[in-house]
């Protein structure tokens, strides 16, 4: 039950992708390299390669999503897999028992991969613990825990723009507390070895213990952005205004929103990233989001190649490990 590296098989290869935590630097680089090889596929007249022909991928989304769901679907189709999409009404209380019951049913239909998004941290791990040995699980976001493919596509975009990770100063700005994207980015960036990793947010949105993950915490936007090479903005959920997290969107934008003025303290060639969907004039101004330093749309298109890489590596393993479980 509590196997440490649930996501690796007996040979140390990716069997599931649940979190970036625990992946070796070389494993991340391999995924990025594989994604690189898929980058032209969408531009060719026939946009398909037959790597996963005959395989069935099920997108199990317990939470709403446009970008992630669509790019996973496209990625699977470009690899020639059959794709099944199951949207589970999020308003219905989906308990663990029905969750596992549903998996049993899908297993009985001979699926090969579950791409899972769920509102509870640890959902992907739970599913990976209980699926049949021939099935792989890819985490498409679980609660506040992890969103590994998002982090990988962000790494891909950074590498595409900047080449090397070692000299970079990266600032992640926004709601760190509730963000699965931030957690996965932090693991990826510390593993790839950036020069400095900062998180920037008001104290209400950064848990104190986050510095244990190897980041420097800033509570002032200008200090946090100074001389940064990469600025990653996080989405601010509207719900945060209802509780005691923040007084208003207006005040947040004024103090932590990315504008041309605040971006000016970063390096002149700094790139601006955002996992989407963007709240314009809440965390980022339109001038910056649509400006020359923004690589937000590149992130989206890179998402397809990176997800193709993950799926093909996870499902395309030589079948030597089946007895290992």
């Amino acid at each position: 039950m509590r196997r440490r590296n649930l996501q690796l098989d007996a040979q140390g290869r990716l069997r599931h992708l649940l979190t970036i935590e625990g992946l070796k630097r070389q494993q991340i680089v391999d995924i990025l390299d594989t994604a690189e090889s898929f980058i032209g596929v969408g531009d060719q007249p026939v946009r398909k390669i037959p790597l996963l022909r005959g395989k069935t991928v099920v997108n199990l989304f317990f939470e709403a999503s446009t970008r992630t769901l669509t790019t996973f679907e496209l990625a699977a189709k470009r690899l020639s897999a059959d794709v099944l999409k199951i949207n589970i009404n999020t308003s219905a209380t989906v308990k663990g028992e029905s969750l596992l019951d549903m998996l049993r049913n899908l297993e009985a239909m001979h699926c090969d991969m579950f791409v899972v998004r769920h509102g509870d941290s640890g959902a992907a791990h739970l599913i990976a613990q209980h699926v049949a040995p021939h099935i792989s699980v890819v985490n498409a976001g679980d609660g506040r825990h992890a969103h590994p493919t998002q982090a990988l596509l962000d790494m891909f975009t950074i590498r595409q723009q900047k080449g090397e990770f070692a000299p970079l100063t990266v600032a992640i700005v926004g709601d760190i507390l509730h963000s699965r994207v931030a957690r996965s980015q932090i693991h990826a960036l510390t593993t790839l070895g950036v020069s400095e990793l900062r998180v920037v947010a008001p104290r209400t949105l950064v848990p104190e213990a986050v510095s244990g993950l190897g980041v420097h915490v800033f509570h002032d936007l200008h200090e946090g952005l100074r001389d940064a090479d990469v600025v990653i903005m996080l989405r601010l959920q509207k719900e945060r205004m209802q509780g005691a997290m923040l007084p208003s969107e207006h005040e947040y934008f004024h103090t932590f929103g990315l504008t041309e003025d605040s971006l000016a303290v970063a390096k002149p060639d700094a790139i601006v990233m955002h996992p989407g969907p963007i709240n314009r004039c809440v965390e980022i101004s339109s001038e910056v989001a649509d400006g020359p330093q923004s690589v937000i749309l590149q992130q989206v298109s890179n998402g397809i190649a990176v997800r193709m890489a993950v799926m093909s590596m996870v499902l395309g393993r030589a079948p030597v490990d089946e007895e290992a479980r």
């Binding site: 935590e21 941290s121 640890g122 679980d142 609660g143 506040r144 825990h145 992890a146 699965r180 957690r183 848990p207 213990a209 986050v210 244990g212 993950l213």
Partner: peptide, 13 residues
């Protein structure tokens, strides 16, 4: 517990 583990796993503390 709100601390190192809850922050790492994204569990509400």
């Amino acid at each position: 517990h709100e601390g190192a583990v809850s922050v790492r796993l994204g569990l509400p503390g």
